[in-house]
Design a protein around this nucleic acid. Structure first.
Lengths: 174, 174
DNA sequence: GCAAAGCCGACCTTCACAGTCGGGATTTCC
DNA sequence: GGAAATCCCGACTGTGAAGGTCGGCTTTGC
């Protein structure tokens, strides 16, 4: 299970643009340099971000890219979807959770995959570019990670309860 | 972003075995038949499940496989890890969430990926095989939507512009 | 008109995934 | 003791997608 570099790089592009919000167009070459990523490849990706209306382009010598909307209104899930397609690509867990798998009669695992899908969706759509920018550059990692995990876990269990309307037995405490 | 068929089939095997809990060994051929999956491939996968001590094998004519522990004590995350490796394979989100990425100084997206990782982990580890068995065979699934990935993806990117005003919960700040 | 930017399609390489195959080793049943 | 059914294993293969490059346009500012 992995997120493609497409999505990862795409997010990095968007975050870089978010940091330069309000400063006019930022050239892709500059982004590539600062993020240490291959320019030619980013070009391919940013095209799709533009087609997905996440980014606007200005041509010409002083051109570049800008976010199409305020950073606080662009969630990561949009970036991932634009570059990577469905969040969880499985016959059993469609992007809209309505898709049905090959074994409608006895697909034992359908519900689980739907849950995994919504969990991904929740996490990604709850984070905006502005959030990412605000969070970056904190204390050294292990510390930040532990703190984050604790907070995250509390929140997860909270909205797990909220999402319990789905026909799934309550999660057993491990 | 996708879960490999390895993991999916592996889960299906385990669920099939969980259904036959207490009935002695179940032959892989039987599982393959009932799940409509290629026997030779499953053989490869079940080997890894055995090495991961999720399953025990009995050889000989009346042989087969059984769960190594009660179905209620085996969570899906174990199956996924055994067959698919790290939950979220990224430099920025190690299996134990302590691993650090290439850009320790200014990796803007580290925190997000750690969050996605824990979200996956929470969901998968909160579901045991027994839960899956208990949930299966419930009410009929929603009306079928034809599977056309390309079309889906195209439509998705096209809709992105229109979906500009989705409500977006703010991520908890650190 | 030249340089710097965006724009585009085609191409290339590598590698993991999904799946097959053929042959062994064990056990059971008759 | 053999036939049959099972697990066990390494090796092989084909396909597709991921990751990235390239060359050549068009647009714009100075």
């Amino acid at each position: 299970m992995k997120l493609s570099t497409r999505a990862e790089y795409g997010i990095r592009i968007l975050v870089a643009l978010a940091r330069a919000e309000g400063e006019g167009p930022r050239s892709l070459a500059a982004v590539a340099r600062s993020e240490k990523l291959p320019h030619a490849y980013l070009e391919q990706l940013v095209r799709e971000l533009r087609r997905a209306a996440l980014v606007t382009a200005t041509r010409g010598k002083t051109g570049g890219y800008q976010l199409a909307r305020p950073a606080a209104e662009i969630s990561l899930v949009e970036a991932v979807r634009a570059l990577d397609g469905p969040l969880l690509e499985m016959p059993c867990a469609g992007p809209d959770n309505l898709e049905v798998c090959d074994r409608p009669q006895d697909c034992s695992v359908h519900e689980v995959f739907v849950r995994v899908h919504s969990s991904l969706e929740d996490t990604l759509s709850a984070t905006s570019l502005a959030d990412v920018v605000a969070t970056a550059g904190g204390p050294p990692y292990p510390v930040a990670v532990r703190r984050r995990r604790a907070a995250q876990h509390a929140q997860m269990t909270a909205n797990a309860a909220a999402a319990a309307d789905r026909p799934m037995p309550a999660a057993p405490a491990r």
